[in-house]
Design a protein around this nucleic acid. Structure first.
Lengths: 171, 171
DNA sequence: ATTGATAATGAAACTCAGTTTCATTGAGTG
DNA sequence: CACTCAATGAAACTGAGTTTCATTATCAAT
């Protein structure tokens, strides 16, 4: 299987600095609210991890977040990043997404409405797409089986337009 | 409203012994054909791994296959099971499916038409379902982005009807 | 401020599924 | 038979993920 070095996120919708601040405040508040219900506090390390994810233009792995956070604070540890990512997943702010290199990657769910992923096996690029119709039929299928969905993962692996143009259609 | 045709395929549709033999022969032939193109041979160990997967009534992990194969042949090794599973994936006979316990699990793709999975986070049960409508909208989305799909993974994690009845709706 | 309780932390150790190494076996060919 | 090379299993290795543990930070109650 192809070993891709990096997962690239398609550029997110632009945000003005003011919009970003607004968004930041909201998300931080959400996180803090969750922490409070657990008797925990929003420390500067926890905030740093969340800020990394919010500023990132791509899906980050634990190691990515660790390296990035460490650039600003030499003392932050892997363990804290790990534990914070777990907290963020528990409160629903962050989700793990698929990757082609065996490392878990994370994205902010609060960022954009629900979307699925197309992952290029050639270059590792991740294309995000929405399909309300698919969501609808999924909901229907789930209900039909008496199931209650908590989260889902829909990843299509294949070859993106750019890679097909470059290398032709041959496998 | 369009009616989606979903089918619960687990437990799988019964096969008569004769039908099973027919199926077995076909699948083994497919595997051997692939091996030949690579200058490899269908050894009894490789056949054993494939037979385990075909006989199984559930999704097996590497360790499951190893234990099962070892029941019949004390000498078979983990490494061979691992390598055979890789070969089976390469030739498209087998696919990795999601799990809740961190161990990769495998299923025969040749067994049934394409289907997606609902995975109960409580009991780990996997419900398989088809939704042609979802497939259709997926194809559409893929085309729209100039993507060519090779395979995909659609897993819905949640709580199955039985577990909800048992434990109530509380999280 | 001082104390005591407890949350939080980072470095390092540990886990374990997954993967590779390597010496040996086996199957096929000339 | 000798030669080649695929195939194998045991054991060693890998590395992302996770836990441990000694230390530090926080904060409430003196």
């Amino acid at each position: 299987m192809t070993k891709t070095a990096e997962v690239i996120l398609f550029p997110r919708n632009a945000r003005t600095p003011a919009q970003f601040q607004q968004w930041l405040a909201t998300v931080l508040q959400t996180f803090q609210d969750y922490l409070v219900t657990r008797g925990l506090t929003l420390t500067h390390q926890r905030e740093a991890v969340l800020r990394c994810l919010m500023a990132a233009q791509r899906h980050l792995s634990l190691e990515d977040v660790y390296a990035e956070a460490r650039r600003k604070d030499r003392t932050i540890g892997r363990a804290t990043v790990f534990r914070t990512l777990r907290l963020l997943q528990e409160c629903g702010l962050v989700a793990e997404v698929g990757s082609t290199d065996g490392r878990a990657r994370f994205e902010l769910k609060a960022d954009r409405p629900h979307h699925d992923h197309m992952i290029c096996v050639e270059c590792g690029r991740i294309l995000e797409f929405e399909s309300p119709m698919m969501e609808r039929f999924q909901d229907e299928a789930v209900k039909r089986h008496g199931f209650v969905a908590l989260w889902h993962r829909h990843e299509i692996f294949g070859r993106c337009a750019a890679c097909r143009r470059l290398r032709g259609r041959a496998s």
